[in-house]
Simulated assay, not measured.
Amino acid sequence: MAANMKAVKLRIKSVQSTMQITKAMELVASSKLRKAKERAEVCRPYFRTLYETLKEIAVNNTEFNSVYAAESKSNKYCYVVIAGDRGLAGGYNANLFKCMEADSAGRDYMVLPIGKKTVEYYSRKEVEAVTEEFGEVADISVGDCFEIAHLLCKEFRKGTFGHIQLCYTGFVSMLSQKPDVFSILPLTDIKEEAEKREKASVSRNLILYEPGSTEVFDAIVPEYLAGLIYGAVCESQASELAARRTAMDAATKNAGEMIDQLNLYYNRARQASITQEITEIVAGAEGV
């Protein structure tokens, strides 16, 4: 009985130590989340407006001869996948990879991983990577997003791949984060997605571009890609921190419940041990 009580006491101490760690991680995630949430909310209008503008151009303009607007001859896809740098965030990373695998099923594809977990995941699966230089999502800046965009445009023009998809986790609320995948190049893919959601009116040219629509469009595309990627990075970081905060809060509560149950078991065992000792003493006294 004494040995059993000692094991329970050690177990209680172990769970208390774990609870201190989960509580600290929850507090750290909460402190970082406020700033990340504000950044995501500030970037979101730009992120959406940029995508809607290119979608409108795809549907309503017919003059473009740009390589970015032509129907791709290559069936290879490049997925820009943005996951986290660390675990202990509930199903954040796993849900993103499931969404990505569902979209890429049956396709020939390569990836541009952003985040340590993304690099590790696709290294294990031996999927070809465009580059692994942007392995830490926490260190991604606006300048890095422009570098990624120019790299993607360069490889797209070379014909390394014919389609670019962006896979990230959208921040819905503190308790809800939604993984999503959508096409960002070529323009024909964006047009197909737009026409699936609403029937396009008769295509017509709405804007006169100077010096020309193709030149303007080719100059805009890298800026467009950089803006979308940066917006997705901001959303993903806020989502990761929110998921980690929720997971650590749940872990802390579970640890507290476990400690209560172990204390109850320990007190019962202690009471039983005391009762047994008293019984033995009384029995011994009667024997004398």
Score class of each variant (00 low, 15 high):
Glu63Asn: 10
Ser236Thr: 15
Ser141Gln: 13
Asn263Leu: 12
Phe217Lys: 00
Ala269Tyr: 07
Lys154Ile: 01
Met110Phe: 05
Asn263Ala: 04
Glu38Gly: 01
Ala200Trp: 06
Leu96Val: 09
Asn60Met: 06
Val142Cys: 12
Ala251Lys: 07
Ala69Ile: 07
Gln276Asp: 14
Ala219Asn: 05
Asn205Met: 02
Ala94Asp: 15
Ile281Arg: 10
Thr62Gly: 12
Thr160Asp: 00
Ala242Gly: 08
Phe97Asn: 02
Phe217Asn: 00
Ala129Pro: 11
Ala238Glu: 09
Gln261Ala: 08
Lys178Ser: 14
Ala283Ser: 15
Val127Ser: 03
Ala285Glu: 11
Ala283Cys: 07
Lys37Thr: 14
Leu206Gln: 05
Thr188Ile: 05
Met174Leu: 14
Ala102Arg: 15
Met110Pro: 02
Ala247Glu: 15
Val282Ser: 11
Ala69Leu: 08
Thr214Met: 07
Tyr46Gln: 11
Arg197Lys: 10
Ser273Thr: 09
Arg270Thr: 07
Ile82Asp: 04
Ala2Val: 03
Ala7Tyr: 08
Lys32Glu: 14
Gly87Met: 00
Arg39Phe: 04
Val137Asp: 06
Ala219Phe: 03
Ala29Ile: 08
Lys199Ala: 13
Val127Thr: 15
Gly212Ile: 00
Asp85Ile: 05
Gly227Lys: 08
Tyr46Ser: 04
Glu128His: 13
Asn267Ile: 01
Met110Gly: 03
Arg244Ala: 11
Ile148Phe: 10
Asp218Phe: 05
Ala7Arg: 15
Leu187Ala: 03
Cys153Asp: 10
Ser236Lys: 06
Ala105Phe: 07
Glu277Tyr: 04
Val8Glu: 00
Asn205Tyr: 00
Phe134Met: 09
Gly231His: 08
Arg11Pro: 00
Glu147Leu: 06
Arg34Gly: 07
Tyr77Gly: 02
Leu175Arg: 15
Lys32Phe: 11
Val28Ala: 13
Gly91Glu: 03
Phe134Ala: 10
Tyr79Arg: 02
Ile114Phe: 13
Thr131Asn: 11
Gly91Gln: 11
Thr131Phe: 04
Ala219Ser: 08
Ile190Ser: 06
Ile274Ala: 13
Ile12Tyr: 02
Asp189Pro: 02
Asp218Ala: 02
Ile229Arg: 01
Ser203Gln: 07
Asn4Val: 04
Ser14Ala: 14
Ile57Trp: 13
Thr49Asp: 15
Pro179Glu: 05
Ile140Phe: 09
Asp180Tyr: 08
Leu225Asn: 02
Arg48Pro: 00
Ala247Val: 05
Thr169Met: 04
Asp189Met: 12
Ala36Cys: 11
Ala251Glu: 14
Val181His: 09
Pro179Phe: 02
Gly135Ala: 14
Ala2Gly: 03
Ala238Trp: 06
Ser104Arg: 14
Ala102Asp: 14
Ile184Phe: 02
Lys117Tyr: 00
Val202Phe: 10
Ala242Asn: 08
Val111Arg: 10
Ser176Glu: 14
Thr169Glu: 01
Ala149Trp: 01
Tyr209Gly: 03
Glu71Asn: 12
Met248Gly: 01
Asn95His: 12
Ile190Val: 15
Thr53Met: 00
Ser273Arg: 12
Asp260Ser: 11
Ser123Trp: 03
Lys116Met: 10
Lys23Met: 11
Thr252Ser: 15
Tyr265Gln: 14
Val172Gln: 13
Leu241Ile: 04
Phe217Arg: 01
Met5Lys: 14
Val233Pro: 12
Ala94Gln: 10
Phe47Cys: 01
Val216Gly: 01
Met5Val: 02
Ala7Asp: 12
Pro113Val: 03
Cys145Lys: 02
Gln20Cys: 03
Thr62Cys: 06
Lys116Thr: 14
